[in-house]
Simulated assay, not measured.
Amino acid sequence: MNDQPLPAVPTIIAIGTSAGGVEAIRALVAQLPEDLPAAVFVVLHIGAHKSELPWLLNRAGPLPASHPADGEPILAGRVYVAPPDHHMTVDLGIIHLTKGPRENWARPAIDPLLRSAAAAYGSAVVGVILTGGLNDGTAGLIEVKQHGGIAIVQDPMDAANPSMPRSALAHVAVDHCVPLAEMPRLLTGIASGRATPARIDKRMSVTLETGANGPGKDMDAQFTQQHPVAVTCPDCGGALRETETGSLAQYTCHIGHVYTADVMLAAQFVALERAIEAAMRALGERAELCRQMAVRADGQKGDGGESWTAAMHEALEQVTPLRTLVVREWIHPDSEGVPRLSDP
């Protein structure tokens, strides 16, 4: 088994899958050699549910598989599986985990892994799309190709769910479209021929710094504070159109809700307050559930009471900054305090 850090620009095999993916990944990993000169990254759409995939892969083949920790170094001959409810991204020699915004309804999602791998490793990336629904992974595979990497897609006729492979084929000039049974040999051959360090073109670095997909393109699936595309209606969530009646600014949504700027500001505050209160309620309920489980664990003389108690205190601690947001004095331009609004 390789257990050494990879070169600065190694072969990175990034695999994405969804529906039908557990069996597909098991079959693929089972046939990869113990001395594979590459690191394998796997994203399966599991959401926040507990994942036994590393355990299954360890039993299936010779490569050790695990959920990595944030900041863990990348080693050759390892399989890294995105843990539940975390995006997994890579930088040069390092794995990052984040609970950034969901992409394509998923966290972990495939696109952040492929996007970050393409940015960090350029032409040394092999992007693989296996069976799955909808089209997560297509945008990431486009970036892999744009940075000189290799794109591989499972033959849709061979996939349990052909939607993701079909989407990739429709939008990406893939290098290989093969049945699952042929992929281990293909990946091993590519990795063996590309394991020596490669040089990232300086022009690529400039492109990445300026944003290949526009200014501020985020490679790491983090929450951002960019300008919203539109202001939305507090009543229905629809986009608002700004109009003027004389010197009065008004905001109207497509079904007819109308606000002046002052009332809009107040309505936004009410929506913000409700959202914060909902978060406070959820944290309180989490704390109560953990308290009940701690009592239960203590009663059964188990060893999990301390962790449940710690989780309870963690939840309660997070309520304080939220409460501060609700009770603070906010600035309300052009109005005397917050206009009183009746609840709908």
Rank of each mutant, 00 (worst) to 15 (best):
P228F: 10
T89M: 10
P215N: 07
G189E: 14
Q222V: 09
V172W: 08
L240V: 05
L289W: 03
V263T: 14
M1N: 05
A159C: 07
Q226A: 13
Q250L: 15
V338S: 04
E314H: 15
A82C: 07
C253S: 08
G216P: 10
C290F: 11
V144K: 01
M219N: 08
I129T: 07
G193R: 12
E317F: 06
C177W: 03
A69D: 11
A65E: 02
G237E: 04
E285L: 14
G216S: 08
L134S: 03
K202Q: 12
P5I: 03
N161P: 02
E23F: 05
G256V: 11
L248I: 14
R328G: 01
A48W: 01
D343S: 12
W55G: 09
E209M: 13
L28E: 00
T196W: 10
A294W: 04
E277T: 07
T196N: 09
I94T: 13
K217T: 15
I12H: 03
P37H: 05
L6I: 10
K145A: 13
T232W: 01
D85K: 03
D218Y: 03
D235F: 04
A249H: 12
Q318H: 15
P54G: 06
A173F: 06
A139Y: 05
P333S: 06
K50S: 10
S51A: 02
N135S: 15
R194H: 12
I15H: 03
A117E: 01
E329N: 12
A117C: 06
I152R: 00
L36N: 04
A38Y: 01
A30P: 00
P321M: 01
A60Y: 02
Q318E: 14
E244I: 04
L6E: 00
P7S: 14
A271I: 00
S66N: 02
K99N: 08
D334F: 06
D235N: 14
L114H: 04
D136G: 07
L63K: 04
